[in-house]
Design a protein around this nucleic acid. Structure first.
Lengths: 192, 192
DNA sequence: CGGCCGTCTGTACATTTGTACAGGAATGTG
DNA sequence: CACATTCCTGTACAAATGTACAGACGGCCG
């Protein structure tokens, strides 16, 4: 039954991610994760070699699922017809991400962890590339002269803006909403 | 002797920041900070009420010094004559930041900590505003139609790009260097 | 049935950590 | 000089943490 095994493992990984989203990577302790996942303490040490291993796999896990999400999102974004439409969709995504902070905070925690741990750089890289690719298709559809580079800029701006939204936790979704005209201006200028 | 007191306090705060830059916020323990600062364990509990207090003050301390740095840098940037010149200066700053990671990583750790701790949001806000203002003056000098908003975009892009550079620690400065043409393109498009 | 094996869990233990606090050293004050 | 006050540090201890591991449980084969 690797099915059951996999779901149990994932149950633990996702509990770890919820903790990261709520209280940062330092909150990932065997005991806290076990409690959050509703499994006994022994489970976390059974499925993962060490605390570091658990943290690493949790970040790789969220990276993998975000890559998949961007792949699907990339397909949809190829159909945009105007800078405004793309800006709207990207802002909607950002607002949604800000609303359900877990994955979004995990992304930033992953960057920082990757800064000190080479094993995580590949995951960070893959995540970043997927995000960029999902936007590049849309930039191409809008007639950008260099879709890859423009997408790189748009994604960098989104990440930077998202960061700011997170730090205004009173209402990060509202903060994200305010970036709509900014993103519009950026995309318009790049493809115009 | 508040002079001596201040320097001792700062000695501890800066040791904490070096630890953050090297191993993240979770590395800030009384013992690790004391050892890094070369002071006895009792000192850290004497100058700071608790571990949380120490972490908070360390982040506020680096925020304050970065605000000051941006204020000075803002003056200099007002004299730029072209998009290329501004892009060059901003890239140089980014390369320098990536080279000496501590303050740069601290910035991101501050964002994340501010996401969960309201007391830190003001510092994050102030830092962000200072960074934006330092660029806004230059955008104005270049004839931007909306310097504040353009600066907001440029700063967001820089922060997003910087994040990426950090995750490629093999040589973050080299990664930052590669953003030079991207920044140039962005600024040119915005003010053009 | 008995034996075997992989899955899983409760417990135990050495470390690490936050923090309180008694008292030492230094400095000022009469 | 005695004394008070403030600054500082070593030590102690409870709590939290990482991790090893003995053994329970459940299926499966002979």
């Amino acid at each position: 039954m690797e099915q059951a095994t996999a779901s149990r493992r994932e149950q633990i990984l996702e509990a770890a991610l919820r903790l990261i989203g709520r209280s940062g990577r330092s909150a990932v302790t065997h005991r806290a994760v076990a409690e959050e996942a509703g499994v006994p303490l022994g489970s976390t040490t059974y499925y993962f070699d060490s605390r570091d291993d658990l943290l690493r796999q949790a970040l790789e896990h969220v990276a993998a699922s975000e890559v998949e999400r961007y792949r699907r999102r990339g397909e949809e974004l190829r159909s945009v017809r105007s800078a405004r439409e793309l800006a709207d969709r990207l802002t909607d995504d950002l607002v949604a991400a800000a609303r359900d902070r877990v994955a979004y905070i995990a992304e930033y925690e992953l960057w920082l962890e990757a800064g000190q741990r080479p094993e995580l750089r590949e995951a960070a890289q893959t995540w970043c590339d997927a995000e960029q690719r999902s936007v590049a298709g849309a930039m191409e559809a809008l007639g950008s002269s260099d879709p890859a580079k423009d997408a790189s800029l748009v994604v960098a701006a989104i990440d930077g803006l998202g960061e700011r939204a997170l730090a205004r936790e009173d209402d990060p979704a509202k903060a994200a909403e305010e970036f709509r005209p900014e993103l519009h201006r950026l995309i318009e200028r790049l493809v115009g």
